[in-house]
């Protein structure tokens, strides 16, 4: 069973970074992965969507995913690009400031994550994407926070190495926040059962 996740938001929010970090983390944990960005031109302020697929076998999903059962929403802008492709009962992690504005027309479980606040708490508002990934890790068990941190550090260019501790803190704050408010693995990654068997 493959985990299919959309990350959606506005160009510049770190949408593609979240997708790549989760994919890299899963890869280091021995999973098969696919990562497909959807954008018409790389422009700040425009729509940014990325699809991540993780599985135990070589990925069979299509590059522009027809459907998924998990999503991370950093903005309500362009949300329709993703919402029409979510299966009913999907898990949606939404940034707290926009969670109320996401229409829930598919019986989805919308989890509000104060990612920006957690980023600020960790030391940098821009670390919101890291906090969001921490929450994703805790709620789904798809990737470990350690693998996320490792993947984050792998992607930092040398001139941005100073942000690693802040990012790492933000990931942990996201984990803690999700556990406290919603619990662990409330929407487990589909392959966890296969791994356990």
């Amino acid at each position: 069973m493959e985990l299919k996740l959309f990350v959606s938001g506005i160009g510049g929010q770190g949408v593609q970074l979240i997708g790549k970090t989760i994919a890299l983390a899963a890869l280091t944990e021995g999973r098969h992965v696919m990562l497909a960005g959807e954008y018409g031109g790389h422009m700040r302020g425009g729509s940014s969507v990325v699809a991540v697929v993780i599985g135990l076998e070589p990925v069979r999903a299509l590059p522009n995913l027809p459907e998924a059962e998990m999503a991370i929403a950093l903005s309500h802008s362009y949300w329709e690009k993703v919402s029409t492709r979510l299966k009913s009962g999907s898990l949606i992690l939404a940034e707290e400031t926009i969670a109320a504005e996401l229409p829930n027309d598919g019986g989805h479980r919308i989890v509000s994550v104060p990612a920006i606040s957690l980023g600020v708490q960790a030391g940098n508002r821009l670390a919101a994407s890291m906090a969001m990934m921490g929450a994703f890790s805790e709620l789904t068990g798809a990737v470990s926070p350690e693998a996320l941190a490792e993947a984050m550090i792998e992607q930092l260019p040398p001139y941005r190495r100073q942000h690693a501790p802040t990012n790492q803190t933000a990931i942990q704050l996201g984990v803690n926040c999700a556990r406290e408010h919603y619990g662990s693995r409330v929407h487990p990654a589909p392959y966890l059962a296969e791994l356990a068997a």
Partner: peptide
């Protein structure tokens, strides 16, 4: 271009 830009392990 799907093959060119889709990332896979």
């Amino acid at each position: 271009n799907l093959i060119a830009r889709t990332q896979m392990g």
